[in-house]
Write a protein that binds this DNA or RNA. Structure first.
Length: 479
RNA sequence: CGGGGUGUGGUGUAACGGCUAACAUGCUGGUUUUGGGUACCAGUGACUCCGGGUUCGAAUCCCGGCACCCCGACCA
């Protein structure tokens, strides 16, 4: 943790350094001895736990069961689907020795579990009666990335990966979209983060997928962050792994598959999108501790009464499912205030002799600096409302940022300028890998997605001028 | 992996090639304070990232490694 004479870097000065400062100040993680890996400290892990509890419930509600597959994947399995192996080959961690001896066949540390799961799924799926097969796993995966940043890109990360097999394309597509929508809800309800949901271009889709859908969020510097994906795998993997089943007509057909995942990166997105120059801001629904109560203790005989009052307020909140703690450390009040601002605790309540006397309490929402006073009989209602309002305020700020920073352009000059200004750009594009690469080279912007909200229409490609009939695509610089 | 930058107590910094590596903060104990980082006293804490070299003498110069940061390429 930094000291008081070394405040965190202001956002405008160096966004990247600010982000690292916020994380360190909030005591979320440590660097590991292995480059690029992240040690999640309790405060950081608590954020992920909130995400897990929401997502796990939603996943189960949609009929999916949890299972667990091994960390090690025999290398030959990974090579079965051609595009898949080509996509992942450069970032694999491979184990060559075990028990002190060289292994006959190297083992890949899973970068994702399609291959090892589907090798098994082929045995689980025999008949149309076995479908749909709906499996999810909570796991860690390893991708040996060149460059890392806490939460946003780490060598090892935590995620949830869902894998399903269906009897028809339509059903698989529906599942793909349903899970995409779950991620949108996760983002909006938990992270207070509005997102653009849409479909990835051919070039940007998942290695081995038919279609990839994504949630794209806008950070405070205008860069995009993709933090959840849902893939319609078609029959690509089913063919490679021979996942076939007998239909009602007693004919063999390959299964139609989906996979979908969200990672600890989403926590990074939340941090980047909401935090400020004072430090971390945790949206209320993501905060394990929603309220911290700071009693003003003056060393007199009133202290016991003030403390009892604080405890009374805390237990009332807890009885109404609002997690609250009392900060009884012997630090000075000001120091506590700064600390909890850096920790991002959504609401701070202050009580002392004054409040005790007139049965009130002072509260401050993390995203506002004004102190407000309320009567203790209205405690639960007041705090509940404030938590709800805070969620709304955080959401609206990001929504507004998104709305005002998406620009429709019709010339390449406009395009370049808008990207330079840190905006999301919406335009037509010919859909080719060549054009996409060229634009990326010249401007640093990549395609984010074809938003689901867009409609197909005629236009001309922003770069090549070729006439196209398609949705407009979003371009942006991205993390 | 290419280009650039930075590595000094837990943290942030300082020190011309030259005294026992300095200051602030933190941490521990004490007194004092407590409605936005109290003040003072005492204590604690660094083979100056690692390994070589140049030199009478290296935190400082040179070479090699490693780590971190920034900009690219790769990606959730």
């Amino acid at each position: 943790m930094k000291d008081k004479n070394t405040p965190i870097t202001p956002r405008a000065e160096d966004y990247s350094q600010w982000y690292l400062d916020v994380i360190r100040e909030a005591d979320l993680c440590d660097y590991s001895p292995v480059k690029g890996c992240m040690i999640l400290k309790p405060r950081g892990y608590a954020l992920w736990e909130q995400a897990v509890s929401f997502l796990d419930a939603e996943i189960k509600k949609s009929g999916v069961q949890n299972a667990y597959f091994p960390l090690f994947i025999p290398q030959r399995l990974l090579t079965k689907e051609k595009e898949h192996v080509e996509g992942f080959a450069p970032e694999l961690a491979i184990v060559t020795h075990g028990g002190g001896e060289a292994l006959d066949e190297p083992l890949v540390v899973r970068p994702t579990s399609e291959t090892i799961m589907y090798e098994t799924f082929k045995d689980w799926v025999q008949s149309y009666r076995d479908l749909p097969l709906l499996i999810n796993q909570w796991a860690n995966v390893v991708r040996w990335e060149k460059k890392t940043k806490p939460f946003l890109r780490t060598t090892e990360f935590l995620w949830q990966e869902g894998h399903t097999v269906h009897a028809t394309y339509e059903e698989a597509e529906q599942r793909t979209l349903d899970m995409l929508d779950m991620y949108r809800r996760y983002s909006e309800k938990m992270l207070a983060l509005p997102v653009i949901v849409g479909q990835k271009t051919e070039q940007e889709k998942f290695a081995g997928a038919l279609k990839t859908y994504t949630c794209e969020a806008m950070m405070q510097d205008g860069k995009a962050l993709q933090f959840a994906t849902s893939h319609n795998l078609g029959q690509n993997f089913a063919k490679a792994f021979e996942i076939n089943f007998l239909t009602e007509k007693n004919e063999y057909e390959f299964g139609w598959q989906t996979s979908w995942g969200v990672t600890t990166r989403s926590i990074g997105g939340m941090i980047m999108a909401h935090s400020d120059d004072k430090g971390l801001v945790i949206p209320p629904n993501m905060a394990a501790t929603k309220v911290v109560i700071i009693p003003f203790l003056k060393g007199g005989e009133d202290d016991a009464k003030v403390l009892a009052y604080a405890e009374q307020l805390a237990s009332e909140l807890k009885n109404n499912s609002i997690t609250a703690t009392i900060d009884v450390t012997d630090k000075r009040p000001g120091e506590k205030h700064y600390q909890h601002e850096r920790f991002g605790t959504p609401i701070r309540i202050e009580v002392g002799g004054r409040e005790l006397e007139n049965n009130s309490f002072v509260y401050i929402a993390r995203d506002l600096s004004e102190k407000q006073t309320a009567e203790s009989k209205n405690l639960v209602e007041t705090i509940k409302n404030e938590l709800t309002n805070m969620h709304g305020r955080l959401f609206d700020i990001v929504q507004n940022r998104l709305d005002t920073n998406i620009q429709d352009v019709s010339t390449y000059e406009e395009f370049k300028q808008a990207i330079e200004d840190g905006k999301f750009v919406r335009c037509f594009f010919d859909g080719t890998a060549k054009t996409e690469e060229l634009i990326k080279e010249e401007t640093g912007a990549s395609t984010r997605c074809y938003p689901l909200s867009e409609v197909e229409q005629s236009g001309i490609c922003i770069k090549t001028g070729v006439p196209v009939t398609s949705k407009k695509v979003i371009f942006a610089r991205a993390y």
